[in-house]
């Protein structure tokens, strides 16, 4: 019952080395074209809060197995953009497509079905405080998928094993380290067999020494061909694994392109400028 095929897509561009990133991009474009519909597309998303324009016509399209990274200064609208895609923040205008199917966010039932197929990882983990790690993973399987207690726990256990936390299954969120908490959150999202994962700065609330274990999980997923859209400040990681980087500022995508294009020394891009300042700060 495991969806292992998800992690064994051998033709996935994610397996290519960073040096071949440009090639990877054209390859992924090919793949997208051949399958016609991208796994997930968000088109012209706009959002204002009060009189402030938070998002101004932002679009993104993810082919199957693609990992795109959104970077930009805080307040650029990255988090809002991700949350607009699955309707946690309802966008004012714009459209979202999952495998070519347009999503009507007004329809609550449709929105819930969409959310079951698009997992989300939050910056501050958001595990359910009153449930053990195991129950955190199992509860949506029971309440949303309608699985039995036994099946849901078996599935939850195998997801926890996958993120290396089977021996922590009976602990409560307060008893886990930040890195472990975020890994449980990954298990929780993966248990729903998502077609796409949205990652909202998954490592930025972690102590530096705990970032590695979470990035390891993301790397593993990328290798397995999981389609992901991730906001992050981890530039080395983005450089190594992203197929495309979107640079956002003031609610707009200012630059986009492969890491090789945007981060090449002397390219003079805003992205490069931002990243060099980021490195100085860190």
């Amino acid at each position: 019952m495991h969806n292992e095929n998800q992690f064994q897509a051998t033709d996935s561009p994610a397996e290519l080395a960073p040096a071949e990133a440009t090639a990877a991009k054209s390859l992924s474009e090919e793949a997208a074209a051949s399958r016609r519909d991208p796994a997930l597309a968000a088109v012209n998303i706009s959002k204002s809060i009060g009189s402030r324009l938070i998002l101004d016509n932002v679009s993104v399209s993810l082919a199957r197995g693609e990992l795109k990274v959104v970077i930009g200064p805080s307040g650029a609208g990255k988090s809002t953009f991700l949350q607009c895609i699955n309707g946690l923040i309802p966008p004012d205008t714009g459209q979202v497509f999952l495998e070519g199917q347009s999503l009507n966010m007004r329809n609550k039932h449709e929105l819930r079905l969409f959310r079951q197929q698009v997992g989300m990882i939050f910056q501050d983990f958001n595990l359910f405080d009153h449930l053990t790690a195991l129950d955190n993973v199992a509860i949506a399987l029971r309440k949303v998928r309608g699985m039995s207690r036994q099946d849901s726990e078996a599935r939850a256990m195998s997801e926890l094993e996958r993120v290396g936390l089977a021996n922590r299954a009976r602990l409560y969120p307060a008893e886990l380290s930040g890195g472990q908490t975020q890994r449980v959150a990954f298990a929780r999202a993966l248990a729903m067999d998502p077609k796409v994962l949205l990652l909202d700065e998954p490592t930025s609330a972690l102590d530096p020494e705990l970032v590695g274990e979470v990035l390891e999980v993301i790397r593993y997923l990328a290798k397995g061909g999981m389609t992901m859209l991730m906001a992050t400040h981890q530039m080395d990681f983005a450089r190594a694994l992203a197929h495309e980087i979107l640079f956002m500022e003031h609610g707009r995508v200012i630059e986009s392109g492969s890491p090789a294009e945007l981060l090449a020394a002397g390219s003079g891009t805003r992205t490069l400028d931002f990243c060099s300042r980021l490195d100085l700060e860190l």
């Binding site: 609550k108 819930r112 079951q116 983990f125 595990l127 359910f128 949303v144």
Partner: peptide
């Protein structure tokens, strides 16, 4: 914490 409610929504809870 509001985040937990968001997490539940993101998982498709009604």
């Amino acid at each position: 914490r509001q985040g937990q409610l968001k997490a539940a929504q993101a998982l498709g809870f009604d």
